[in-house]
């Protein structure tokens, strides 16, 4: 049990890296599609609607496999600059996670945008703020604060989601755990160690969000 710890901790670094990078890029994807979703243009609305419908309605595993195994098969993709991203399992995994978490976060941000009080927006207009300022200085901060609890859950889901990186040959925490299990046949012990590391990370995320919620709570 103890011998496996250094290798598992090493693999944890990759898990953290995948989680943070995907969440970072995912926020932008999420905000982008949330804004499209609130737009009055029907085409933008439907693009965002179907994006989130498809990405949330299919398993993450299918998405990774389509990106990693599927897209590499297309001739013109292999000849284009996209191939730099799509030939490595690492960047494929991050791409899949980003698109996936982007879909879930877009729903979270959208509902946050929708709950913004009309009076606040009218006040902004009355004060003569232009559209861009209203968005960045008023709508976005309120929406971010609104969506904190739900986004915290999404962060935990993404952390667990990175375990699928092991299906495309990456050696993240789950990948290494599986490797150790299949060579030592000690599933319970390895599960306890790896599971505890995951739980510790979940705990940290949970408390981090709680801290942010308290910090930005102005009621």
């Amino acid at each position: 049990m103890i011998e496996s710890l250094p290798r598992l901790l090493n693999a944890t670094m990759l898990t953290i890296e995948l989680t943070l990078l995907s969440l970072f890029f995912g926020i932008f994807v999420g905000i982008f599609f949330a804004v499209l979703r609130t737009s009055k243009n029907k085409i933008f609305y439907y693009i965002s609607y179907y994006y989130s419908y498809i990405l949330r309605g299919t398993p993450l595993l299918v998405q990774i496999f389509i990106i990693y195994f599927g897209l590499g098969q297309v001739e013109w993709i292999r000849e284009s600059f996209l191939w730099i991203v799509l030939k490595e399992p690492y960047s494929c995994a991050i791409l899949a996670f980003t698109l996936n978490t982007g879909a879930y976060s877009s729903e979270i941000f959208r509902s946050a945008f929708e709950t913004i009080n009309k009076g606040v927006l009218e006040a902004a207009e009355g004060l003569g703020l232009n559209k861009i300022n209203t968005f960045f200085k008023i709508k976005l901060p309120i929406a971010i604060k609104q969506s904190l609890p739900a986004y915290g859950n999404e962060m935990i889901l993404m952390l667990k989601g990175t375990s699928l990186a092991s299906t495309v040959t990456l050696l993240d925490l789950t990948g290494v755990a599986k490797h150790i299990i299949s060579t030592t046949f000690k599933p319970v012990e390895v599960f306890i160690v790896a599971g505890s590391i995951y739980l510790l990370m979940t705990f940290i995320i949970h408390n981090f969000i709680r801290f942010l919620e308290k910090k930005y709570n102005y009621n």
């Binding site: 935990i156 375990s163 299906t167 789950t174 755990a177 299990i181 299949s182 599933p187 599971g195 995951y198």
Partner: peptide, 22 residues
């Protein structure tokens, strides 16, 4: 609820896959 909502599904599956028959 904490353990099985906090640990990746895949890890749980490996636990039962490798540990089940044991």
């Amino acid at each position: 609820t904490t353990v099985f909502r906090g640990v990746p599904e895949l890890l749980v599956i490996y636990l039962f896959f490798f540990g089940g028959s044991g």
